[in-house]
Amino acid sequence: MNIFRFLADLSHMASIVILILQIRKTKSAAGVSYKTQFLYALVFVTRYIDIFFHYVSLYNTFMKIFFVTSTIYILYLMRVQYKPSHDPNIDTFRIEYIIAPSAVLALIINHGYTLYEILWSFSVWLESGAILPQLFMLQRTGEAETLTVHYIFALGIYRLLYIPNWIYRYVTEGRVEPIAFLASLIQTALYSDFFYIYYTKVMQGKKFELP
């Protein structure tokens, strides 16, 4: 465990906590993409299936349980508890466009042709595009609640920090993870516009509004 990965995981955790707090506080899931949350749930379930047969550490197990349960809880909040606040008419990104390419990539680029490896690779590719419905929704509405913006920012920082983690692990352990490394680069690139607007507006105390 190095500092980049640890901070990345904390930031990932923070993003989810921020989102739950926002939904509960405002009793509304307005501005949050259900599709993105659904895709993350799919990411976690397909990736952490190894919790039953591959023990890494207590930290690892705890975090896996946290990510799966908290994301499913968000789905519950959006689908059941605060259902009326979520407007499906602005959450229109076609998730097939993310799921299908991820499935194809998983079948071509993986660490071995076993169900576990293919699901793992699928989850990594899927994660790199899972934010798209949320960013698309943001673009349609043109502005967002401060907390939604912080949520997306924390999520972006998480994957960004995994890049130095991979470089660090390559240098210190001589080990490479090309699939996750490449997927992290793609994911971070998707956030670049968002980061730019976050920096120029939110950091200066202005409302998050798209130009």
Partner: peptide
């Protein structure tokens, strides 16, 4: 499986 370093991460 040496390639699958990512399996010890989240």
């Amino acid at each position: 499986n040496n390639g699958a370093v990512g399996h010890d991460e989240l």
